[in-house]
């Protein structure tokens, strides 16, 4: 009996020893002097990805096979990874941060942890989809939509703008996710376009109208498909992804295309960390993601909008130019504090 315990302990010890073997480190060069473009190359890159492995893993694989550069990817929640980078500061092992939304990128840019990207990278996408200060660049676009249950709601019956959901008719039928980054970006856009007072009124009216709170977009789309609620405020691609598994889901997206905050097109994007010793290599990865091959991948696999010229979105989606996204600078969406204060006052977070 004692032997067995000793055996277990030894096994644990061996396993533990086996896994503390150091990971091979990348080329050790001294960090580059500031303001001299991207510096440093390496055989491997460390990426913090706020986008899931199921969404972006395959395109990273492709880059590895084509270039022979090893990518070590850490997947996680965009905001948590941003918190991680802020906590790590200049000791961050990350070369590149791939974030779900402009808000996460803004948080890093604010602390001045990103390098300025070279203009040949920034010029690949329309100006609206990169940072004002050139510290991050959008990779793919996503539109805010209203997802509705096609059995319970006719598209024609949806209100003309997001404000219509405060009507008695929609009481208890709408779902939202106040803790979600995309939703918060939308509220920030609302504030920028219509002012804080209007945003506060809208939030309160929605809350009074018994809008249901969900944890994230997938549960909302699931709930709409099940008929638990009839309408959900989400990003466009969740439904398209769920449909791959559940072709029969009785839900559809409604694009507002009215220049209001509900028509906001946000981006998933990347920035290169100042502390990186492989900035040039990281730049190559961004160039790859913004190549037609990379962009085609996002069209097919994540159902998002391509941002470069010459690649078309899925034919089932309205064109990017038709979406009539509000005239707003995505860099301004980093003013999260004000939005969170509103959400707190409304008792939503």
């Amino acid at each position: 009996m004692r032997l067995r315990l000793a055996f277990i302990l030894t096994t644990l010890l061996i396993v533990a020893a086996a896994c503390t073997q150091p990971q091979d480190t990348q080329t050790q060069a001294s960090p580059p002097p500031p303001g001299s473009g991207l510096q440093g190359e390496a055989e491997s890159l460390t990426i913090y990805s706020g986008r899931g492995e199921d969404l972006v893993g395959p395109i990273f694989e492709k880059f590895q096979t084509e270039t022979g550069i090893t990518l070590n990817v850490k997947y996680g929640d965009t905001a948590e990874l941003a918190a991680l980078i802020l906590e790590e500061g200049s000791n961050s092992p990350a070369d590149l941060f791939f974030a779900q939304d402009a808000g996460g990128l803004g948080a890093i840019a604010k602390e001045d942890l990103f390098v300025d990207l070279p203009s040949d990278l920034l010029e690949l996408v329309p100006e609206a989809f990169s940072a004002n200060n050139g510290q991050w660049v959008g990779i793919s676009g996503r539109s805010r939509v209203v997802v509705y249950n096609t059995k319970s709601v006719k598209e024609a019956d949806l209100p003309a703008s997001i404000d219509g959901f405060t009507d008695e008719r929609w009481k208890g039928r709408v779902g939202w996710s106040p803790t979600n980054g995309s939703f918060q970006s939308f509220v920030t856009a609302y504030r920028k376009l219509k002012g804080d007072a209007a945003a506060r009124d809208w939030l309160n009216a929605m809350k009074v109208n018994d809008t249901k709170v969900y944890e994230g977009n997938s549960p909302i789309v699931k709930a709409v498909g099940a008929g638990e609620i009839h309408v959900g405020l989400v990003n466009h691609y969740y439904l398209l992804n769920i449909r791959k598994d559940e072709p029969g889901i009785t839900a559809a997206n409604h694009f507002y295309s009215n220049g209001g905050p509900e028509a906001l097109v946000n981006v998933a994007g990347t920035g290169i960390l100042k502390s990186s010793r492989a900035q040039k290599t990281a730049g190559e990865l961004i160039r790859f993601l913004l190549s037609s091959e990379g962009q085609e991948y996002f069209v097919q696999e994540t159902s998002e909008y391509p941002l470069i010229e010459g690649v078309e979105p899925l034919p089932t989606l309205p064109a990017l130019s038709e979406l009539d996204s509000p005239d707003i600078d995505l860099s301004d969406l980093d003013d999260l504090e004000g939005t969170l204060e509103l959400l707190r006052q409304a008792g939503l977070i």
Partner: peptide, 28 residues
């Protein structure tokens, strides 16, 4: 949560796989 933040880059565990997939609505 700790596994997500502290595991070495490129080190996926079952828990992080489950989380990643459900998060992007890939339930299957």
């Amino acid at each position: 949560p700790a596994t997500l933040l502290l595991s070495p880059p490129g080190f996926a565990t079952l828990a992080t796989r489950v989380w990643g997939a459900t998060n992007d609505a890939f339930f299957a």
